[in-house]
Structure formats: structure tokens, C-alpha cells
Design a protein around this nucleic acid. Structure first.
Lengths: 226, 226
DNA sequence: CACAGGGTTAAAGCAGGGTTAAAGGCTTTT
DNA sequence: AAAAGCCTTTAACCCTGCTTTAACCCTGTG
């Protein structure tokens, strides 16, 4: 498990990363927001621990940028502030946790473990339906023997559909879950992706990505009708 | 969505539960751990908000008891303490979040929403009458073993009728509730839908969608007449 | 028996999606 | 620093299926 820590206080950052790496994580330490962004792109960590107050780019701005790249990755914010608006801001971005300084590194470790257990243990990155399966980690779709390489968004959308197979998913729910927000244009964008997924799925006749007009979509196993 | 709040400070508990119920949750408020346990068994809430310091049974003990009953249910702990060992204890039990008093109810609401979105994404609303049931989420009607796929409007209308079964509903009330407005033409449109619903419901002789001339409609269970 | 409220069916109208191509952003490569 | 490459979003145009409108019929009530 890779952890990205962004913390501008050098001493504190070192202590923290020692602590975390002793516990078996692979740690990347960055000294400011810009550096952290570079590390993120290179390392593709599993979780980010971000200081809110940093030079170059603050923790919130960084989090938003990272969130755009990966809507699933969990964040923990570190801050000296207990100001209400800061906490609210963090939670709105989708912080998974919020730790106010000063704190004990052990507290952070427990939270890290809790979150990772939740996010990665329960989420198997293999999904299957009929004679089709998605390996989310490798972004690969195997459909009736036909292998397809997917892009990240394609895979995220398909994963959400497969994780909720046979359930009608409302347009706004899909958008909020996969894109993080919901507006008209993103909706049309989603339609484009749906269209592309249908193409990928054509080799498997046992699977149908059905439109529920005015509501949303379902990915369902097609009963052999007539 | 049901929320169980366990809080021994009566005033604070009331404020909190008002806040939460305004946001559309169904709230049960308990004044101590024992009472909360009873409420838990009765209500089977979807999430628990527990004060740590309570008479009879503290929040941690309660959480452990509840966790035994349901390994998935999420917790949020409320506490005045910022003591390290308390936070650790909570996190070890598997707290999903931890809020220290004093705090803004809005913060709590955001955390509630975050957690619930994560844990439960689909609300299954089911309505039934006689040997017929409507799954509104799936837009499916099961009528005496006959399955029908409904359109959104059909389902909305039928849901309103089923949610108010055996009650006479006035035309203008139905229109305002289902269509959002009430004029002559929409009224005729509704008649078309009523006609179609009657067709769907014919397989179940125990159900009648009756017209109250000059007033509206009732969906009622038909007593074996004669 | 008259007529208004509602039943039923078919046609019309329209909005929500389907599909494809081009534009726009980011990163990586040269 | 420009160019190339890859993905996502925007745009345009089309089509389909749902809702509404319309037309005609039936029936209960004064």
C-alpha cells in the first residue's frame, strides 16, 4: 500500500513518514503541493495524507486536482485549524477523515488502517457478469474472450454499473458517484461513455446495458427470451 | 433512512435530532445507553450517532454490543474529550467518524451524508396491496405473478395511489402531487394513465382502482363480495 | 333524457437519449 | 518549445418511446 504524505514542516514530515513506513506502508513524502502533485502522478498512491497549509498549492486545491484524476482515492487532511469553514470545505471535497494538529502519530495510523480496510478490502477489483469480467486495477475488460483495454473513466463507470448490477441507477447518482458532480453537459458526456461501453459489451449477448428513459440505466443479465 | 441518536444532554439531543430530521432522516432519540439499545433493536437504524459519556452504558460499550448484532452498521461518536486513548478506543471499535464537542450541527450533517452515501447507495422502496407489489426503484410491478415494466410516470402515479391505499384521493391532489400542477388537460392525461394502470392490475382480483365520480380515485382492497 | 365526468384508443408532439465527429486539455515525446 | 498522443467534453443531428392531445363513446345523476 502506497501512502502519499504532503507536509511542509520538514521535521514533522520525517517523523510522520518514518512512523507510517515502519507500519509497512510504502511512503512518499512531498514538501509542498506542487511537489506532491508530481509524486502523485508518478506513484499513483492508494491514499493521500495532506497538510492543509502548504506553500505553492494548499491541501484543498491539491485534493481537488487529485480527485479529478481519481474520484475514489481517500484523503486525510492534517490541519492546525479547527475553523468550521475549513472542516466543512474538507468534507465537501470528500475528505475521508480530518485530523487536527497536534496529534499522536498512532492516531493517524489507526485512521489510515480503518480507511484502507474500508476502501480496498471490501472492494474487490474484479467484477463479473454473464461471460464478461472487468479487472479494474489493470483497466482490462474480458468480454467473451475478447480483451479490451479501457480508459480510467470507462472503467470507473463500468465498475459502478457492475457493482450495482441489476439495479436501476439514476443518472444523477451515476454522475455524482463517477464524476463527482452533476450537470447537463456531464450528463451528455456520460451518454457518450454509455454508448462506448455498449460497443465493448456487444460480444456478450448475455449482458444488456438498458436505458430507463427519464431515470437512468441498468446493467443486467439478459434472460434468454424466446 | 433511520438515524439513532444517543445523547444524554436533553437540550443538545433535541437540537441535534431536530436538525437531522429536518434534513429528511427519520430520527430516534435515546437518553442513555440502555434506552438506545432498546431503540436499536426496535428500529434497526441505518446509522448510529453515539455520545461517548452516558449513564447506564457508555457509547463504546453500546457500540460493541451493536457491532455484534450488525457488523456493517456505521457509527459516529460524539465526545467532549480529545483524550488520545478515547479516540483510539473509538477507532478500534471501528468508528466511521469521530466528532468532538462543541461542534456545529452542520458538520455532523455533512459527515452523516458522506457516510451514508458510501455505505448505502440504493433505497429500495416497495409498496404492496393484496397480491400485488410495486418496486418503485426498479419500476416493476408484480401482479399475481405477472411482471410488468412500468414507465416513470406510471410508477409515480401508482406509488402515490399505493402509499395512500384505501383513501379517497381528489383529482387535484393527485395532479399536484404527481404532475406538480393541475389543469384540465393534465387531468385528461391522468385519466389515460388510470386506464392503463387498471389494465396492469387486472390479474389481481383482490385490488380495485375505483372512480369516485366528481371527486377522484381510490385504490382499495376488494373484499370478497356477494 | 340530457349532459357532464370519465373511459378508451389512436395520433401527434416533444424531450431525452444514441451516435459520431470535432474540439479541448493534459502529458509525454522529440 | 513544439508536436504528438490520448482521453474527455462539447456539439450537432437524428431517432425513439413516452406523455399529451384529440376524438368519440359510455354511464351515472339530476
Amino acid at each position: 500500500m502506497k501512502v502519499l504524505i504532503a507536509e511542509d514542516d520538514i521535521d514533522f514530515g520525517n517523523i510522520l513518514s518514518q512512523y507510517v513506513s515502519i507500519s509497512g506502508f510504502q511512503v512518499t513524502l512531498a514538501r509542498n503541493g506542487k511537489e506532491a502533485w508530481g509524486s502523485y502522478i508518478r506513484e499513483k498512491p492508494d491514499i493521500c495524507v495532506l497538510d492543509v497549509m502548504m506553500p505553492e498549492m494548499d491541501g484543498f486545491a491539491l485534493a481537488e486536482k487529485i480527485r479529478q484524476n481519481d474520484p475514489e482515492i481517500p484523503f486525510i487532511f492534517l490541519t492546525a485549524k479547527t475553523l468550521k469553514e475549513d472542516i466543512l470545505k474538507g468534507l465537501k471535497i470528500g475528505a475521508d477523515d480530518y485530523v487536527t494538529k497536534p496529534f499522536d502519530p498512532e492516531v493517524l495510523m489507526l485512521r489510515l488502517n480503518n480507511i484502507l480496510k474500508r476502501v480496498y478490502d471490501s472492494t474487490n477489483d474484479e467484477y463479473s457478469l454473464s461471460s464478461t469480467s472487468l479487472n479494474f486495477n489493470r483497466l482490462e475488460l474480458l468480454c467473451r474472450g475478447k480483451k479490451e483495454k479501457l480508459t480510467l473513466k470507462e472503467a470507473q463507470l463500468l465498475r459502478y454499473l457492475m457493482a450495482n448490477k441489476n439495479k436501476i441507477l439514476r443518472r444523477d447518482a451515476i454522475l455524482n458517484e463517477v464524476w463527482g458532480e452533476d450537470d447537463y453537459f456531464l450528463g451528455r458526456s456520460m451518454d457518450v461513455f454509455i454508448s462506448r461501453l455498449r460497443k465493448y459489451l456487444t460480444p456478450d449477448p448475455g449482458i444488456e446495458l438498458r436505458t430507463i428513459r427519464g431515470t437512468g440505466f441498468v446493467l443486467e443479465e439478459r434472460k434468454a427470451e424466446r
